[in-house]
């Protein structure tokens, strides 16, 4: 795997700061997660900007994750958009 994506994958699966793992709620094939609470990211294919916005602001039942650093949010957004082959 691309080392540049490893940080995002790690946060996705394990969480960071006070943010829980994304994998608890979201299915993402690359991460090996099968969460059923929120949208399936392989189907949704959100782009980088949308991922960052939703992590920062929340959407629907998903709360805003304000404890993550800008770098962590960027790493997550890059990882998810890349492995779902969303347009950047």
């Amino acid at each position: 795997a691309d080392p540049a994506l490893m940080e995002g994958r790690q946060i996705f699966n394990s969480g960071a700061a006070s943010a829980p793992a994304c994998a608890l709620c979201h299915t993402l094939k690359d991460a090996g997660s099968a969460g059923q609470i929120g949208p399936n990211l392989d189907e949704l294919k959100p782009d980088t900007a949308r991922i960052a916005r939703v992590i920062r602001s929340g959407m629907g039942p998903m709360p805003a994750f304000t404890a993550l650093t800008d770098d962590q949010v960027a790493a997550l957004a890059r990882y998810v958009s890349t492995v779902t082959q969303a347009k950047p």
Binding site: P20, C25, I37, P61, M62, P63
Partner: peptide
């Protein structure tokens, strides 16, 4: 009555 996984912010509830 949706089941919220442990570790999530309880504000996730419906």
């Amino acid at each position: 009555g949706e089941v919220i996984p442990a570790g999530l912010d309880p504000k996730t509830r419906i």
